[in-house]
């Protein structure tokens, strides 16, 4: 037996014994153990769910739903697979069911509105006359203090709201591309979009989020100046 095998057996046993401990804790109603598990798996669960339902908010609902299923199945869980695998199976099933329900609504390619013409930046920001189209007052550096944990919490909530307020097609594209890190071609394939339409949606979405952030940091700056 080589070292690698020994390691992997050791790892597996570690995982198994951890599973057993976790299961015991969950079955005895240990809230802390439950929350630890919820937090630990959330990122992975989000990624899996998004592959089916595409929308972060719906994915959150599917995850909620999954945990409900996990709790109800816990007494009968026979440990033939690891706890995590079992949870992900429940998740995948629920996400698929949800996807089938969502797909009765119009598909993404139907809701692309290429004729809709909204500027990335409000036209009031640009000159008219001789220097038409150049900035009147150009954007300023964001001297934000997001390294600060508290401020980042605030900014985080704000960006999330800005994304939520986008039209569905834009929200889905920006979520998959910029939040989840899918490539352009992955998004085009999954959503049956042309490269160009994908870019149009992405452009509108990014421009709006930037605008929202500019406004947010502008308000912060003003508040800071008012204090000092």
């Amino acid at each position: 037996m080589n070292e690698q095998t020994i390691h992997s057996i050791y790892d597996r046993e570690l995982i198994c014994s951890e599973d057993t401990r976790l299961l015991q804790a969950l079955r005895s109603g240990d809230e802390r153990a439950f929350l630890i598990l919820v937090e630990r798996l959330h990122g992975k669960m989000m990624r899996i769910a998004l592959h089916y339902v595409l929308d972060r908010q719906i994915a959150e609902e599917v995850i909620q739903d999954t945990w409900m299923g996990v709790l109800h199945g816990l007494t009968n869980f026979e440990e033939r697979s690891s706890l995590q695998t079992w949870i992900f199976q429940i998740l995948t099933n629920r996400a698929k069911t949800r996807m089938r329900r969502e797909q009765r609504t119009p598909s993404l390619s139907d809701i692309v509105e290429p004729q809709e013409d909204e500027p990335a930046v409000s036209l009031e920001r640009f000159r008219t006359g001789y220097y038409a189209g150049w900035w009147i007052l150009h954007p300023d550096h964001w001297n934000n203090g997001v390294e600060d944990q508290v401020l980042w919490q605030e900014t985080y909530v704000y960006i999330q709201r800005a994304v939520q307020q986008l039209p569905a097609s834009q929200r889905i594209v920006i979520t998959l591309r910029d939040i989840e890190g899918w490539t352009a071609s992955e998004v085009c394939n999954r959503l049956a979009l042309s490269e160009e339409n994908q870019r149009v949606l992405l452009h509108r979405a990014r421009s709006k989020v930037r605008r929202a952030l500019e406004q947010y940091f502008g308000i912060q700056q003003q508040a800071k100046q008012a204090v000092s």
């Binding site: 990122g43 985080y156 910029d178 939040i179």
Partner: peptide
């Protein structure tokens, strides 16, 4: 500055991914 802001926007968006429940 506009492009810089756009890059910052993308960085922020990427950080949402690590966001907890």
């Amino acid at each position: 500055i506009y492009v810089e802001q756009m890059r910052q926007t993308l960085k922020f968006l990427g950080q949402l991914n690590e966001a907890a429940i």
